[in-house]
Design a protein around this nucleic acid. Structure first.
Lengths: 336, 336
DNA sequence: GTTCTGTGCGCCATCGATTGTGCAACCTTG
DNA sequence: CAAGGTTGCACAATCGATGGCGCACAGAAC
C-alpha cells in the first residue's frame, strides 16, 4: 500500500493522482477552493493521501512559509506541581490557539537553559517563554538577536516582559496565617524561621520581604539567623535544619515544595517536640496539605499567569515592568 | 549590529564575509576541513556568525539532510512524580545522545494522543515514544505508515516493542507489605481493598493479579466488592470510598498516586477510626511517604526503563513481547 | 615551458511545500 | 463566429542549508 522506504510526498501523490504537485499541495492545505481546483480532483487527492498515510513535511512547509508555529517554553522541572501545571496548561492553551508547543526542562542549569533556548530558536520558535530561568536576560538577549519574542514567567527579567506571582503579598498572608496558628495551637507568637530558596533570587527576596513585613506589623523582630535560605533542594533544606532541635514551640515558613521535602524529612525524624511545630509552604502540593503540622500553602494562580502570557504573545513588547498575579492562600483545618 | 527584521542566514553571512553560501555553510556545520576551506576564512565566518547572532535554520538544514534529530514522546501528565521523572530523564538522555527531545502531554485523552502523534510525525520525528498511551496500537499504526519507529513505555501495545514495569511482582510485594503491617500494627489480617485504576488497563490488571496472588498465598479470599478500580482520578477514588466508613481495622492497596490523593482526602475526613487504617500505594511521591497510615510505596525504576527504551531505539523492531523492569519497594518505618 | 598535484573555494541541484502567474479549453454573449 | 469571461490546472521560483562536482591558481617536477 505505501512505499516502504521513504515518507510519501506531494510529488508521489501527484504522480499517482495524475496531477501537479502544486494542485496536490493546495488540496491538502485547504487552499484548493481559492485556487479553483475542481472538487473531483480534490476528493481524489484526499482519498489517495489518506490511503498512502501522507503527512505534510512541516519542515518543508514552514520553511517556505517562513514561520514555524512553534512556541517554546523552558521550565526548570516537570515533576513538581507548580511547574508541571504550568507546562500542562501551557501546552493546552498553545494547542488551542493552533500552535505547536515545545516545552523543555532545563533542571535550573544556566548552561542548559541557554543551550535549550538556542535550540528552540534554531527550530524557528516564534516565541520563547522562559519559566523560572536563572538568567532570563541572557536568553532575552539571543532572542532579540534572532528576532524572536521572549517572555519571562515566574521569575522576572529586565529585558523582556515578565509575568510573576505577587510573592510579597502572598508571603505576608501566609506568614500571618502561620503566626496565627502558632498562637492558637501552641500559644506561641514567633518569630518564624524562613527555610529554603536563594536570596539572590527575586522571588525568594520578595517572599522574605513579605515574611518580614508580617512580623513587623506585629512588632516581632526576626533574627538574621532565622533566615535559612540556603538553596533550592530537599537536601539543602534538610541539611540546614539538621542541627536545629527545637525545645519548644516553633514555626517555619517553607519556601517551595522542594524545600518542604527536606523540612518534612527533618520533622519526621525529630525525636521529640514534633507536635509543637507548625509550618506553611509557599507553593501547593495535594499531599503536602495532609502533612502533620502544615497549616497552609500558597497556590500560585497558574491559569491566570498563562492567560497574561498569551496576552503578551504577539504584541510588540510594551513595558518590562513585571505583571503581578495574586496567589491563592489555602488554609488547612486546625488539628482535631 | 544585526538586521532588525529577519533572521540572519548563510546568504547574509556570505555577503558580508565575501564568500559563497556553501563555504559559510560548511564552516558552520563543521565540514570545512573536509571541504578544504582555509582556516582564515573559517575563522572570519565564525566570528561574523557570532557577531550577527546567527543560528541555523534547522528546518532548512534537516529538510536537506532528510532527517530531523527529533525524538518525540507523549506522556499523560507532567505534574506527577512518575511521569514528570520520565519526561525529565528522557529529555536529559536524548540530549546526551545528540537528539532534540520533544515531549508533549496528552492528558490521557485518546484523541489528543493521536493528534499529538501525528503532529510529531509531521515534524519528522525519527522515533515516537508513547508513554502510558490509552491506545498505543493506533499510534503505532500511523508510525508504521509513515516509516517512523515507535516504542511503548509504561503501557504495552502489541504492534511495537514495549518497556513496562513488572507490575505483577511489585503489586504482590506491596500487598504483602501492607498485610504484614496490618497484622503487626492492627492485629488484623485482611483482606485489603484495591482502590483506583481501570481494569481494562493492562497495568491495573497486572497489579490486581499480584494483589490477589498475595492474598491467595495466605489463603485469604478477596470479595469482588473490595475491588474498587473505578478510574484514574482523585475525585473518583474519593467518590468510591465516600460511602465506606470502616468500623474496625482496614487496609488499602492504592493504585497510583492520583488515586492516593482521593484516598488521603477521604482518610483525613473520617470522623473516627482513621488510626485503624493502613495503606500502601503503587507509585512513589516524596510527600506521600510521610502521610499517616502509609506503610510503603512502589517506586518504578524510571532510569532503567528509559535505558531499555534507548536500547531499542534505532534497532529494527525485534519482539513485541514487553520488556519487564523490576520496581523498587519502599517500606516506611512503623509508627512510633 | 609543459605537465602534474594540491589547495581553496564557488556553482548548482536538491530536499518538500507554497504561491504568483500564465494559459489552454470551454462557455457565454451579441 | 469573434470577443470576452470563466474554469481548472500546470509551471517555475522560492524558502535556507547542503554537498557533489569542477574550476582557477600556485607550486613542484621533469
Amino acid at each position: 500500500m505505501e512505499k516502504t522506504s521513504k515518507r510519501t510526498t506531494i510529488y508521489d501523490l501527484a504522480k499517482i493522482a495524475d496531477a501537479s504537485p502544486s494542485a496536490v499541495s493546495s488540496v491538502l492545505n485547504g487552499t484548493w477552493e481559492k485556487r479553483r481546483i475542481s472538487q473531483k480532483l480534490a476528493k481524489r487527492v484526499m482519498r489517495l493521501a489518506e490511503e498512502q498515510g501522507y503527512t505534510v513535511n512541516v519542515q518543508a512547509s514552514l520553511l517556505r512559509r517562513e514561520r514555524s508555529n512553534i512556541i517554546g517554553m523552558i521550565v526548570p522541572k516537570y515533576g513538581n506541581r507548580y511547574f508541571g501545571e504550568i507546562a500542562e496548561q501551557f501546552e493546552a492553551m498553545a494547542r488551542g490557539k493552533g500552535f505547536f508547543p515545545v516545552v523543555t526542562c532545563t533542571q535550573r542549569d544556566p548552561e542548559l537553559e541557554f543551550e535549550a533556548a538556542k535550540e528552540l530558536i534554531s527550530y524557528q520558535a516564534e516565541c520563547l517563554i522562559s519559566t523560572g530561568a536563572t538568567d532570563p536576560d541572557r536568553i532575552s538577549a539571543i532572542c532579540v538577536a534572532s528576532g524572536v519574542q521572549s517572555i519571562n514567567l515566574d521569575l522576572p527579567g529586565k529585558d523582556a516582559p515578565s509575568v510573576i506571582s505577587d510573592n510579597y503579598s502572598a508571603a505576608r498572608d501566609l506568614t500571618k496565617l502561620i503566626l496565627d496558628r502558632c498562637e492558637k495551637d501552641l500559644d506561641w507568637s514567633g518569630p518564624l524561621r524562613f527555610v529554603g530558596g536563594r536570596l539572590a533570587d527575586h522571588n525568594t527576596a520578595a517572599r522574605l520581604d513579605g515574611f518580614v513585613s508580617a512580623h513587623n506589623e506585629r512588632s516581632i523582630s526576626v533574627p538574621d539567623s532565622y533566615i535559612m535560605a540556603t538553596g533550592y533542594s530537599a537536601e539543602k533544606a534538610a541539611a540546614t535544619l539538621s542541627t536545629f532541635k527545637p525545645d519548644g514551640p516553633t514555626g517555619l515558613f517553607v519556601n517551595s515544595t522542594i524545600s518542604l521535602e527536606g523540612v518534612v524529612r527533618w520533622h519526621s525524624e525529630l525525636a521529640q517536640g514534633a507536635d509543637q511545630i507548625r509550618y506553611g509552604c509557599f507553593d501547593w502540593d495535594p499531599f503536602g496539605s495532609f502533612l502533620p503540622g502544615n497549616v497552609g500553602m500558597v497556590e500560585q494562580d497558574v491559569t491566570t499567569m498563562l492567560i497574561k502570557v498569551f496576552e503578551l504573545f504577539g504584541k510588540p513588547s510594551t513595558s518590562t515592568q513585571p505583571i503581578l498575579v495574586p496567589c491563592k492562600l489555602r488554609a488547612f483545618h486546625p488539628d482535631v
